[in-house]
Amino acid sequence: MSILQVLNLHKSYGKTEVLKGVGFSMNEGEVLSIIGSSGSGKTTLLRCINFLERADEGQILVNGEVIFDARNKNQLSISEQRKNQLNFGLVFQSFNLFPQYNVLENVELAPKLLAKERNDYKENKKEILASIESEARAVLERVGLSDKLANYPCELSGGQQQRVSIARALALKPKVLFFDEPTSALDPELTGEILKVIRSLAAKKITMVIVTHEIEFAKNVSDNVIFMDDGVIVEQGRVEDVIDNPQNERTRNFLRKLSDK
């Protein structure tokens, strides 16, 4: 069964329709890249799936269970909203770390706040907090930042900040981790370290959706690719097919323009 199914998402801002019926599905452990020209709706798609925007139409299913249905207008309770939200993690283009917290605190903040709602929090507070801390240290080690735990975001390079934000998302163990152009705010010489981290996550079978302009990387790391243009998915399939042997005219034009650069 698919871990994530997105069905027929529509989203308009005022009169402009930005998503015109987008649907795809993916399996556990799969890496999916989304490519497409600027303004094609990639960010909007990620924002709708991650509940930062409300889609006007469509459904989102996780492991076959509907977690979003645009027809359903009732307000969910805060705990239901949070449960839905925590299916996913999102790594932003601009990191959005919390500047007043150090690296370790950035990663621990959400797990600690969530733990407060556990029934056994009061009894086992010490153990719970200790295990959150050791897990936070472990994810930071995975992204190669064990020596920066006490540093503040302003003391880190862009690449290091982005790795903290990946660790912060990983610490909540999302079922699907989304990346919106994780390297495009970085100097070219720093993109490599992020791509390396993502590759290592792929090797660990973390389910990921990556919006990227780095075609070589997408080809390298992903199982499947989606090409979006003007609010629709024009072509989707295995990397070898979509990138090396595109069927659609628009996909071919897009890839040709990229390789001309």
Binding site: R82, G89, F92, N96, F98, L113, A169
Partner: peptide, 22 residues
């Protein structure tokens, strides 16, 4: 920045946690 609120939201924080903790 809006990004601070959004980062808090995708980490599962409530609106008041975002305000008071971030």
């Amino acid at each position: 920045s809006k990004g601070q609120y959004e980062a808090g939201q995708v980490l599962g924080l409530t609106k008041s946690q975002v305000f008071f903790k971030i």
